[in-house]
Structures are given as structure tokens and as C-alpha cells.
Design a protein around this nucleic acid. Structure first.
Length: 519
RNA sequence: GGCGGUGUAGCUCAGUCGGUUAGAGCGGCGGCUUCAUAAGCCGUAGGUCGGCAGUUCGAGUCUGCCCACCGCUACCA
């Protein structure tokens, strides 16, 4: 296994507030990075905001503010939200940072010098109302759908990146590395896109004349133009780790992974690898693509007002419950549905009844039958071996699933240990055995086994629900357990010290009654 | 239109290279239990694996056609 791990979120566009989709992306990255840190890998979590382009200008004009101010406002909103949710990013990058500007200009110059950027005129249908060229999709009966007027023919000169030069290489790369784009469904889609793009010539327009748009990074070889969109935005992944000659750049880039939602597949799967190729860098190790969240079975949209603010979810249910739901209910890559009913169902079934209650019953009996201290195990028989086997399987399975970018499967593996522990208690019935003095040793073993299972559960769960994991460990009397912990060794059986003072505490995850709540 | 995807128990989904009685979780139902957050455990659910045809000794699992839904077709996670 590699000793470092670099994972990025997309940089979020600064024309809207963070919603469930942004939150999911960021939470998956946070969880993955926490896991890799727990494995002792040197890890880097990059996120940030994409602040240039037309749409920011539109918002700015509508508000009578400067583009810079609008960008600043939303950028702060994203950063403050992630801070309040406790996401452990290492760097929050903004495309308006001077450092990013010089990296982008350096790369543009290099690609230009290499002859991969071409200047030429093209003719298109320009809508004066929109102040931009229209695509066929924008037209209804030959008229602009927004302004209901026929576009005029206009020519404009722009710079084009000849990414088509690298399509053959990219196709081979994708074929040679079957998991470069994962899950597989998106790989197929990209291969199809490549065939289609090839037919179109494979040029990417990367400039806008300042006369039309001046909110962007100036082209180093032509002061009349700014760099347009993706060329500016994608490069953040390099700037973020110190390209070109920062001390950590080479190490982290060699282990780079991107995580995106499916809507920006094309820029990441086609534009970005070809851009990297043009400057002599390898593509990222993996491009991980997830699906969309629907809310109450409908698409998320501003007009429906169903954006789902993570801060409101935090206030209502606690962020870790929301986070658990997101990670547990979406099969990575597929679309999924969110509703408060589903969230509450997960909370009650998995968190309250299974995990929370296991903590309660285990620690309550440790208090009653073992004076509130983790007892010394005396014997180990079949039932204990079974729990140990499930624990060992969980550690191994979590690793496999996390490295395959399947957080929901990893959680299933952890909860298999929760279930096994609950079953184990039924089998051993310590509440009965405690009444028989001859079975005292067995009660000790039973409670030890439960406490140790909980320790392992908490360690494995810590990337997913860091605060809840800390709380379980605190109640087990081993508060600093995660300091310096490293998987898989730290989760091997037998790590909890007998004699550790336990605390029962209030229900870790209270059940939620939706009916009662709405009254 | 083109390209891609999806359609398996009430719900959400697993089903590896085609092979014995098609699986899991949730919900529902029945029972056991009382340490615990009225939690837990055990047992159940008889689903034409979207439809039709084909390949095969044998198909949810491969091929063709059809139906339904969804996504992409240059800038919303």
C-alpha cells in the first residue's frame, strides 16, 4: 500500500449555498482521508471554491456588488459550513488567490509554448440578450429560449486547447487502468464521450475576450483575454499541493485521487487528463464518481426549495446522524433518495437500537456485575471465538471497501460486528449468569468481550462518526485510544486493558419519533 | 436524434468466470427474553428476477427485439 493519500473535492462554485450534494461529496472525502490517516498514511484533503466566470458576474450585477465581493461571500459560507461541521480539510483553496493565478498562467504559457494552444476565429450564433454564443440546446425554433429572439451570426477569435491530440493516449490509459474511473459505469460513459468528442475535433475553448468577460485570470500571452472556466478551475488540484516545486508536490500528486459528482464527469475525465498530459504529468490514480441525491423523490433544485442545508440537519438531528445516513444510504456511484423519514429510520434502527443500545446494555452490565471496570477475561470458548472472528473480518473488510471507495459497504462490515455482539449477549445471558456464583468467570469474559468489541467498533467507526467514536471510547475509559492508533494493529483483538473504568452515560443516539415531533 | 445507464421480495439494494431449493437490511407478522434507548434474539415473508424470442445440457447472469424510467450531449455535488 502507498504511504500517502491525496484526495480532493471539486471546488464549489460560488453562486449558491452548500446543500446536501456538496455535503455528501465533502463528507465522503473527509471520511476517506480520516481512514487513511488512521492507517498511518500521510494524507492531504483539499477543498475550496471556484470563483471566476460568468455566473458570478451575473449574481454580482443582480446585487449591485462586485464579483469579488460575491465570491468572497459564498466562499466564506462554504468554509464556515465545513468548519462548523468539523470537516478535517488540510487546505481550502480559492481560485482568486494570487498564488493560483500564477500557477495557472505558468501552465497556460507552457502549453502555449508547446504549440498545444491555437488561436482562431469561429462563427457562431450570438444572443445579444445573453451576451454569449448559444448552443443548439439553447435554441427553441431557432430563437433564444430566454430572450425569444433570433441570435445573430457573429465571429469571435478565441484560444483553443487541442486536447484531441491526446485522445488516443487517454483511451489507452483508460483501457489499461480499468479502475481509473470508478465505478465502472462511468468508465464506459467516458469511453463513449471520447468517441463522440473525437468526431468533433477535440478542441476546448479556453478563453474569453475581456470585452465580454473580465472576471478571470488573464492569459499570459494575450492581455485581451481571460482564461475560461475549467482550465482555471481544474488546476486548483495542483496549486493546492504546491505545484510545481513545493516540497510535498511530487509525493502527493503520485497518490492523487479526485472525488466528484457525475455532472462534472467530462471535465474531469477528459479535459483534465489531457491538460495534465500536455504539461507532462500523470493523471490522478482514481477518478471517483458518485451519483445524485434526490430529496423526497424529487430532484434537488432551488425552485423546489428542497436543497437541504447541512446546518439545519445538524441542528435537528446532530451532524453525525446526518453524516451516517449519507454514507450508509448511498451506494457510491448510484443516485439515492433522502427524506427525513429515511434518516430517522436509519437513526432508530442502526444507531439507536443496534449500536447505541449495545453500548448501553454492555456498560450497564459492566457497572452492575463488574463494578464499572472492564473485567479480566478468564475463559474463551466458541461464542467468544465467533465474535473475535467477526471483528477480524470487519477490520479486513473495512479496508477492502474503503480502498474501493465504497463507504456504505464498509459501514455494513462494522455493523456486522455490532450485530454479532448483540447476538453474543443473548447467547451468554450475563444477566442470568450473574445470579450464579459459579459462572462469575464467564460473566467477566462476556463483559470483557463486549467492551473489547465496542473498542474495535469505535476505532473502525471513527472516520465515519469521529465524535461518537470518541464518546464510546471515553465511556470505555480509554479516552486517548485514537492518539497514535494505527490500523490494522490497533484494532486487533485484546487491546482493551482490564480494569479500565467505564461510564454508562445517557443514550448515545436517542430514538426519534417523527410523529411526536410534528405535533 | 445520438450515446450511456437502470428495471430482482412492500421499501432500499446484493447477486462473482452462466450451474444445486434466487439473497441481505428495513418494514410487516408470529414467538422467546428482560441486561438495555418499549431496545435485543429466533422464526417467517412463497418475488413470472420489466416483456418476448434465442444461444446453451442449463440464464437474473450471454444475444436480439420491445416496453418503462433516468442521465449525458461543453461549465449546478
Amino acid at each position: 500500500m502507498s504511504e500517502s493519500f491525496y484526495l480532493t473535492t471539486p471546488i464549489y462554485y460560488v453562486n449558491a449555498e452548500p446543500h446536501i450534494g456538496h455535503t455528501y461529496t465533502s463528507v465522503v472525502v473527509d471520511t476517506m482521508v480520516r481512514y487513511h490517516r488512521l492507517c498511518g498514511e500521510r494524507s492531504f484533503f483539499l477543498t475550496g471554491t471556484d470563483e471566476h466566470g460568468e455566473k458570478v458576474l451575473e449574481v454580482a450585477e443582480a446585487r449591485g456588488q462586485s464579483a469579488r465581493r460575491v465570491a468572497e461571500h459564498y466562499s466564506n459560507l462554504f468554509r464556515q459550513t465545513w468548519d462548523e461541521l468539523g470537516l478535517s480539510y488540510d487546505r481550502f483553496i480559492r481560485t482568486t488567490e494570487p498564488g493560483h493565478k500564477s500557477v495557472v498562467q505558468g501552465i497556460l504559457q507552457r502549453v502555449y509554448d508547446a504549440g498545444e494552444i491555437e488561436f482562431r476565429e469561429y462563427e457562431g450564433k450570438y444572443c445579444v440578450g445573453c451576451e454569449r454564443f448559444l448552443t443548439d440546446r439553447d435554441l427553441v425554433d431557432g430563437r433564444c429560449r430566454d430572450h425569444e429572439r433570433a441570435p445573430e451570426k457573429r465571429t469571435e477569435a478565441n484560444y483553443f486547447f487541442k486536447m484531441g491530440n491526446h485522445f488516443d493516449w487517454l483511451t489507452r490509459h483508460i483501457e489499461k487502468h480499468p479502475d481509473f474511473i470508478r465505478p465502472e459505469r462511468y468508465r464506459n460513459e467516458v469511453l463513449a464521450m471520447l468517441r463522440e468528442e473525437s468526431g468533433l475535433g477535440g478542441d476546448l475553448c479556453i478563453s474569453r475576450p475581456k470585452s465580454r468577460l473580465d472576471w478571470g485570470i488573464e492569459l499570459p500571452f494575450d492581455e485581451n483575454y481571460v482564461c475560461y472556466v475549467w482550465f482555471d478551475a481544474l488546476i486548483n488540484y495542483l496549486t493546492g499541493i504546491g505545484y510545481p516545486d513545493g516540497p510535498d508536490f511530487a509525493e502527493f500528486w503520485a497518490s492523487a485521487e479526485h472525488l466528484i459528482a457525475k455532472d462534472i464527469l467530462k471535465p474531469h475525465a477528459i479535459f483534465w487528463p489531457t491538460m495534465l498530459r500536455a504539461i507532462g504529468l500523470e493523471p490522478a490514480r482514481h477518478l471517483n464518481v458518485h451519483g445524485y441525491w434526490n430529496v423526497d423523490d424529487r430532484k434537488v433544485s432551488k425552485s423546489l426549495g428542497n436543497m437541504i442545508s447541512p446546518l439545519i440537519m445538524k441542528e435537528k438531528y446532530g451532524f453525525e446522524v446526518f453524516r451516517y445516513f449519507l454514507l450508509r444510504d448511498m451506494a457510491f456511484g448510484l443516485d439515492s433518495n433522502f427524506s427525513e423519514e429515511l434518516l430517522v429510520g436509519r437513526n432508530n434502527a442502526d444507531l439507536a437500537n443496534n449500536l447505541g443500545n449495545l453500548v448501553s446494555r454492555s456498560l450497564n452490565m459492566t457497572k452492575r456485575f463488574a463494578n464499572g471496570r472492564v473485567p479480566e477475561p478468564t475463559e474463551s470458548e466458541g461464542p467468544e471465538s465467533e465474535v473475535i472472528a467477526v471483528a477480524e473480518r470487519a477490520v479486513a473488510e473495512v479496508d477492502v471497501q474503503m480502498r474501493a471507495m465504497r463507504p456504505q459497504r464498509a459501514l455494513e462490515a462494522i455493523f456486522a460486528l455490532v450485530d454479532a455482539s448483540n447476538r453474543y449477549l443473548e447467547l451468554r445471558e450475563p444477566w442470568k449468569a450473574a445470579k450464579d456464583a459459579e459462572l462469575a468467570g464467564r460473566v467477566d469474559t462476556t463483559l470483557y468481550t463486549c467492551c473489547e468489541a465496542l473498542r474495535i467498533i469505535a476505532i473502525l467507526l471513527s472516520p465515519f462518526m469521529p465524535q461518537s467514536a470518541d464518546e464510546i471510547l471515553r465511556r470505555l475509559g480509554i479516552e486517548g485510544e485514537l492518539d497514535g492508533a494505527q490500523l490494522p494493529q490497533s484494532a486487533s483483538w485484546g487491546g482493551i486493558p482490564p480494569g479500565s473504568p467505564t461510564t454508562k452515560g445517557a443514550p448515545l443516539f436517542p430514538r426519534v419519533d417523527l410523529d411526536a415531533e410534528s405535533e
